[in-house]
Design a protein around this nucleic acid. Structure first.
Lengths: 250, 250
DNA sequence: ACCTTCAGTTGACGCATGTCAATCCTCGCC
DNA sequence: GGCGAGGATTGACATGCGTCAACTGAAGGT
């Protein structure tokens, strides 16, 4: 159903039975924390990253209030992060895929402030944060790149604020699909055909909509020939049409 | 009209005619970047921070696409930050006051991604970012505190996402007022009486509402005896009532 | 002090999205 | 292979907020 991954630049095969895989050998390194490091620096990073941790679908990688010790690079799989307000309302704050970094919300308060849940069986590389700071003091490239990663998270959230603050349902869903498409694409997957890992309810929470509205909007897109949807399987038929939809009504 | 500032802990008088004022002498240091540094480290930081820059009301501190060179600590005044989507829609992403740090959105792309506009005559302390990274490699405390500042920005934005994604107009405005109240309070100003520096339109943009809705909601709060509003002057009459409003209807 | 301009308030009305409910579809499990 | 449960779809109806418009009030400049 889902398209198979195409290799990224310089693919490197990994022996299947080693749980600990070095950054220097990881085919995600161009998307992940090691970006920009030279050979020697990358090997130092290998020592930093802990052994990989499997997270089964539906289970938490961390929960709000857990003590903060590490950030996590996603080696494979798919996650959602979300916060729960005092009164119990839940808001999905993001969906994360391979090569992305999670857990930076915990630095400020020494404990996590979101929940992170695997939406499919996944693997993460824990990066003990105290050690990351130590190594950042030695390797300027690493320090700078980590700052970039955090900054981009801030900018990503600005984008979500624009979405939630100014867009109508159709525009929100179009923006969501195009964003997923772009991220799958940059990981070597087909940009226009993919499997949604999350439910309509989770999409709705992320987009500030009710699940019924998400479902109806998908149906409308299908009627209009923009996408073809069957449950969680999505094919973007008319990417340009989706883009145009987002810039109308200004 | 507005209450006068009460001194923070350990107030230190500043000679009025020096434009460059050291962090070590700044009465905002407990709120700002130097937090947690010892005497010696603080003096190093003094060399890092550039001369203060005045920003007149209504003018930009920086604009989206400006090359990124420094982050800014607000010495005095009040700012808004916002992004403009491709199609021209504007979304206010935050309001910043003394002691807060702005500009971290620019790290990831080497140029700023928001606009920052002074809502009253203000002063900022520019912190050249390359130098901050250099010094962070020497002073672990500074490095760690900077990471905390960025992390808290991420968490703050999560809060805005909850607001925009799940709250109704009344709840949004109540949350907004209580947030301002808390921040004024921690700067030594009266928590329950303050002057809004922004227009109804800017509040609306931040809260994902139209200015008419903001205005109507203020009026309703006044009828219900929660606040007393006259244009930009706000007095919170019943803080507990506002808080209760936010946790209803879950 | 007056005028101009911009911000804020208020009302009437419409629409997009939420709410409630019934039904259908899929997938995993026995 | 059939069954059960949860996810998804669709319809009918309700409502909160947006839109449009008129009016009021405050601030700033000459």
């Amino acid at each position: 159903m889902t398209s198979s991954p195409k290799p990224l630049a310089q693919p490197i095969s990994i022996t299947a039975n080693t749980l600990k895989v070095a950054c220097s050998q990881c085919n995600l390194r161009e998307l992940c924390l090691p970006l920009g490091l030279n050979e020697q620096e990358m090997h130092k990073l290998d020592d930093l990253v802990g052994t990989r941790r499997r997270v089964k679908r539906g289970t938490h990688l961390y929960r709000a209030t857990d003590p903060f010790e590490a950030i996590y690079a996603i080696r494979s799989g798919f996650f959602k992060t979300g916060v729960i307000a005092e009164d119990g309302r839940e808001q999905v704050t993001g969906f994360q895929m391979a090569g992305e970094i999670m857990g930076m919300d915990g630095i400020g308060t020494e404990h996590h402030t979101c929940n992170a849940v695997a939406l499919e069986d996944s693997e993460v590389c824990p990066i003990p944060f105290a050690k990351l700071e130590d190594m950042s003091r030695e390797i300027g490239t690493l320090q700078h790149h980590f700052h970039k990663v955090m900054s981009r998270e801030i900018v990503r959230e600005h984008g979500v604020m624009v979405l939630l603050g100014t867009m109508r349902a159709e525009e929100r869903l179009a923006a969501f699909l195009l964003n997923l498409s772009q991220r799958f694409s940059s990981r070597g997957y087909a940009p226009n055909e993919f499997h949604l890992r999350m439910t309509r309810d989770e999409i709705g929470s992320y987009l500030g909509l009710k699940l019924e509205t998400v479902s109806r909007t998908f149906s409308r897109f299908q009627e209009d020939g923009l996408v073809s949807v069957q449950q969680k399987h999505v094919r973007i038929v008319d990417p340009a049409g989706l883009k145009k939809l987002m810039s109308r009504n200004c």
